[in-house]
Design a protein around this nucleic acid. Sequence first.
DNA 1: CGTATGCTTGAGACGTATCAAGTTCGGTGG
DNA 2: CCACCGAACTTGATACGTCTCAAGCATACG
Lengths: 235, 235
Amino acid sequence: MKNKPEPPHCESCDSRPKSVFCALAGNEMHDISSNKGSSFYERGQVIFHEGNRINGIYCVNKGKIKIYQTGSEGKEQIIRFAKEGDIIGYRALLSEGPLSASAATLEESIVCFIPKSFVLNIIQNNPNFNFKLLKMLSKELGEAARIITDLAQKPVRERLAESLLLLKNTFELDEEKNIQVKLSREELANIVGTATESVIRLLSEFKKDKLIDIEGRNIKLINIPALTREANIMD
Amino acid sequence: MKNKPEPPHCESCDSRPKSVFCALAGNEMHDISSNKGSSFYERGQVIFHEGNRINGIYCVNKGKIKIYQTGSEGKEQIIRFAKEGDIIGYRALLSEGPLSASAATLEESIVCFIPKSFVLNIIQNNPNFNFKLLKMLSKELGEAARIITDLAQKPVRERLAESLLLLKNTFELDEEKNIQVKLSREELANIVGTATESVIRLLSEFKKDKLIDIEGRNIKLINIPALTREANIMD
DNA sequence: CGTATGCTTGAGACGTATCAAGTTCGGTGG
DNA sequence: CCACCGAACTTGATACGTCTCAAGCATACG
């Protein structure tokens, strides 16, 4: 974690319009912009660690991040992802407890840190921001519930298909239908909740069935309707 | 769902001090009290159903409730519980989408309904209430993350032990250490995320090992430290 | 060029689901 | 109050999915 000489300004941040901070007033934004910190991370670096306490929230200026918990046997479970414009670490700040998850970068990233007092100040004075936060938490809670049901009831094959579609929705596809994030087989397994070997076997089955194409960590979704069927998603 | 002749008043509601509504001002509370509805439910009745839209939130005056989703094969997955003082249905209200889960009573219950406009009004005008909501959602989100990791990584045996402890924390034990909620074996299975038969087999193992005692739907936790060990809970 | 790390494949073991058949329990009506 | 019926519960046998372990292979890196 090296501090960049020039932290990005919130005023000119490309991510801001997409984030909860779009609700900020000019002076509020300026306030944050001049009081935040900013750090550069390489791929695989840990931003914060489960169990620790933090005094603020992080805002992703650039890059892709995984949020994960460590299970009792030391195995990593990826809970969700964050990308440009997303904030992370707010759960611990709001509940005033220790961090319930860790965060690490999936690629080179720039992440800003906003001290607690500024966040709380905005929460108390800007109902609009406040409401945006509530909405965001609600949305995540709904997603978490769906994940719980899937983990409890779906076989690994369906969960893997569903995870690929989740990655597509989160990180988009490029012109050639490649998922715009590079994950190791182990990381994929840690989303799906299975063993690395199972991911490998099922990925090559999907490839054989012409649902996807694989080149190293590059995954191309060539038949999304069929993949959706494979995922057994309800409506 | 029959409407009771005398809806309980918020002012004298036993549950209020325990709920998010403890943050309400006198006039706000009176406002809600005179505009809410109230219904009586017998055991097993559905309060609201996944996919529907509701225009308000429910507040549990008395009773015990399960919140559950239906998986793609029609199997029920219990996500969480609600009891006296808890509110339910707020996720859908805040995210302005359809309900992501259903709610049904586990015993005779009285549930109040507060129309959307009143809730939103308080959210916008009472920062204290607002912050309480944020805290509540954050707490739930943390719990959901833990459940996700457990479902993905722990064997059924550990999950069942953990679920029993969760029920203890949610509904308390009576003087004889009985869990204060009566669930069918199938409902237990739908918390743990397993088959009914597996729950039955494991419960009798726990009984044989003197961790619990069972009499029908009554479960007595006689050795909580050992049960905690069985659950393989980290710290 | 060698070494470490991630990836792949196969064989086997294990946990859990499923199916089938009883048994008990709880409620209803005679 | 008892007999009956259906639902919930229990137990056993079996099948299947997935994990684990082990070994070989590809790839990246110093």
